[in-house]
């Protein structure tokens, strides 16, 4: 089984590399059923593509076929997944919050880590260790040629998402007299959670009745977002990956959306194809994480040692992942920050 799996993995890795080179597409769910000792993650949509690539890159370095490999399950499509051999089938977690919930509801027999695009919250168990992966930012996007302006202030965004402001003319009298259509990602989305907290100045705002929830985050292809009055929060890194590095595929593309400025600061450095340094210094910048159970993260057994060797400070991702992380639009963290643990 292991040799076959190794061969399959090698073939999958080759296929992945070829696909990446020729089509620029992101890999998706594991091509084979991971073994019970493999390290398996679920959760965030924002970081699923970069984790898929990091997993393929890491697995290509594992020469011992019986050693734990790294796998990551995408946030969609909806349904039930069996994450690894012997695992309890679970509803596929769609987003950071759902991934963290799955992590806490299961054991390493089913889920080893949760991808998270949000930081720890007071409601998270203190036994969840958020291990820093990279830096991202969240801005907002709207369809090209639509009625949204190039820039909105934090107060504008708060007013729009609390439905205090519902017409573009309330933002600026020169804008079209049309009803604003604010959208939010699904409730389990880390991007949604971070955005609502940031526009609230640190306290999450409650979306008003004018807001439509449930669009899949970072997917500008959603037909609802083609509306000229639409706007939606968007991961800047994910956008850069889609637009500049060809990392989108299928529905996971920017579609007609372009990412816009907040408080006069443009989120993208279009020359260097990265998050602008000015935007990275605003409250809209965020760290993205992988979340582990503390007892496993700190354990001295093979499992704990492997987790830290892959995700921890000086581990494989921190030592080797910067190029891949940048190619997906994220900013690599310093050697101090990468792999550091944060918890609530």
């Amino acid at each position: 089984m292991r040799k076959t799996a190794a061969n399959l993995l090698a073939a999958a890795a080759l296929a992945t590399s070829l696909a990446t080179v020729f089509a620029g597409t992101a890999t998706a769910d594991p091509a084979v059923l991971p073994n019970s000792q493999d390290i398996v993650g679920v959760g965030s949509d924002t970081t699923q593509a970069v984790l898929n690539q990091l997993s393929a890159d890491y697995n290509a370095t594992v020469t011992n076929p019986s050693a734990p490999h790294l796998y990551s399950w995408d946030a969609i499509p909806a349904g039930t997944i069996t994450t690894k051999s012997g695992a309890t089938p679970i509803t596929r977690p769609n987003g950071s919050g759902a991934g963290i919930t799955a992590l806490n509801a299961n054991t390493s027999a089913t889920v080893d880590f949760a991808r998270s695009s949000r930081a720890p919250q007071p409601t998270d168990p203190t036994t969840d260790d958020f291990v820093a992966l990279a830096k991202d930012a969240v801005s907002w996007a709207a369809p090209s040629g639509g009625n949204a302006p190039a820039n909105l202030t934090t107060q504008n965004l708060k007013d729009i998402y609390t439905c205090t402001v519902t017409n573009w003319t309330q933002i600026n009298a020169s804008l079209p007299n049309a009803t604003i259509k604010p959208f939010l990602p699904q409730t389990g989305s880390g991007t949604r959670s971070f955005f609502l907290t940031t526009i609230g100045g640190g306290t999450a705002v409650n979306p008003g009745a004018c807001v439509t929830s449930g669009t899949q985050e970072n997917q500008g292809s959603d037909p609802a977002l083609a509306d000229v009055n639409a706007l939606v929060p968007y991961s800047v890194a994910h956008y850069i990956g889609q637009v500049y590095f060809g990392k989108g595929s299928g529905a996971d593309v920017q579609g007609p959306l372009t990412i816009r400025s907040v408080d006069g600061t443009a989120p993208v450095d279009t020359v260097n194809k990265t998050i602008s340094s000015a935007f990275a210094a605003t409250p809209y910048a965020r760290v993205v994480y992988n979340v582990f159970r503390d007892a496993e993260w700190t354990a001295t057994d093979v499992h704990g040692t492997t987790l830290r060797a892959i995700f921890g400070r000086g581990g494989w991702i921190c030592a080797n992942g910067a190029t891949t992380i940048k190619s997906f639009g994220f900013l690599p963290l310093s050697s101090f920050a990468c792999g550091s643990v944060t918890h609530s």
Binding site: P120, T126, G312, R313, F336, G339, S340, V341, T342, H343, S344
Partner: peptide
């Protein structure tokens, strides 16, 4: 001086 080893951050 550099903080090294395992870093644990919380609020």
């Amino acid at each position: 001086l550099d903080p090294a080893g395992d870093n644990v951050i919380n609020r």
